[in-house]
Simulated assay, not measured.
Amino acid sequence: MSNTFTFDPGPRVVSGEGVNADLARLLPDGPVLFVTDANLRALGLADAALEGLSKCDVAVFDDVREDPTEQSVLDAVALGRAIGATSVIGFGGGSPMDVAKAVAYLLGTGEEIGEIYGVDVAQGQGLPLVLVPTTAGTGSEATPISILTVGETSKKGIVAPALYATWAVLDASLTIGLPRHVTAATGIDAMVHAIEAFTTRRLKNPISDALAKEALRLLSANIATACDEPDNFAARDAMLRGSYLAGVAFANAPCAGVHALAYPLGGHFHVPHGLSNALMLPHVLSHNMPAAREMYAELALEIDPSLAGLGTQARAQGFVEALRAITTQTGLSPRLADVGVGADSLDLLADEAMKQERLLINNPLPINRNDALRMYEAAL
């Protein structure tokens, strides 16, 4: 790890119970585009936020699905232009926030979406953007990354500092009562962010390391309680904070092989992103062990301090086993077969994983097509 590094702390943060009801004070004057999804609106989760914006001119765009599409972004941009939006709010899980980031950028710059895919291509200035997560997992509120589905199954990323939000609003009351499977999948997703930020081959640095370790400590200590006691505010608050810290960490020290192998599961089989990460996590960790053993041994102490007396190899193996145990404890399905993926699809998945070059270059150990195929077979 080099002593020379650049670190971007990302958005300013407002945190606290009920703070989502007071978003107007974070926005400039003028019309507001509120990006969310129809399910959250139906559940009433956005009611307090929208009520707090009642004196503003607000247009709500709620046609956002899981694995958000490029078309959703274009439709939301059209609505934003129609009202003359001067700011954007992204309210929800990773999907509405990813859409909102791209929309705020395009509304501010007038650029075409096809021109900004890739890393550091988007160089303009977007509209002021406030992101309000309703799950503790994606960390999207902390990152300058928007992942969109283009066409039927292809995923493309817009990755540039211009996509950072102006404000991230962390209100754990919005995550109270989330279903167990959503709590589990998003929580594992956040843990993967922390692990991959700490072990990335590129741009690893002391600040992201510190954030990743604290994130993993918070998440691993609270995920079971959040699953078992969905109304436990302290656990929910810790999970949301851990998710945010992991987001800041991987925004600076990027994700790698777990995400590379997870994305095709979302694109082709619509497996929720957090669950697809959980499915591939132990197999990628095992693959990376020769290169990442000492880093896994260090992370192990954040999850289980009782491993401190063991040697590096035993601690690293204990780390992998502890993560398997957490996945099982939360009730997530540990096999690809449980989500409808059969052996006849593994070649397709391996081919698609090889397209995730943006992620694969960060993995501590190279992953070729045969490696990917072997890991998918192990996950069956």
Rank of each mutant, 00 (worst) to 15 (best):
P11R: 13
G18E: 06
D22S: 15
R25F: 06
P28W: 01
G30V: 05
V35F: 10
V35M: 11
A38V: 00
L43M: 02
C56N: 05
F61K: 03
D63V: 04
D63W: 00
E70I: 02
R81T: 02
G90K: 08
G94F: 00
A100M: 11
K101H: 09
A102F: 01
A102R: 02
E111A: 09
E115G: 00
G118P: 01
V119I: 04
V119E: 05
V121I: 06
A122H: 03
L127A: 06
V132C: 07
T138D: 02
G139Q: 03
G139L: 04
T143F: 11
S146D: 12
T149M: 05
G151Q: 11
E152P: 04
G157S: 11
I158D: 00
A162E: 09
Y164E: 05
A165G: 13
T166M: 08
A190F: 06
M191N: 08
E196K: 09
R217N: 13
S220H: 14
A224P: 00
N232F: 02
N232R: 01
R236G: 03
L240K: 10
R241S: 07
S243T: 09
G247D: 15
G247T: 15
A253G: 11
P264R: 14
L265G: 04
G267V: 11
H270E: 13
N277S: 09
N277W: 09
L279K: 01
M280Q: 10
V284H: 05
M289Q: 11
A292W: 08
R293V: 14
E294V: 06
M295P: 00
A300R: 10
L301H: 12
D304C: 02
L307C: 13
Q313L: 13
Q313T: 15
V320N: 03
R324F: 03
T328K: 10
T328Q: 09
T330Y: 01
S333E: 15
A337H: 09
V339W: 04
G342V: 02
A343G: 01
D347S: 04
L348R: 14
D351K: 10
A353M: 06
M354H: 11
M354T: 09
K355R: 11
Q356S: 02
Q356R: 07
I361L: 10
P364T: 15
P364A: 14
I367V: 14
D371Y: 03
R374W: 08
A378F: 01
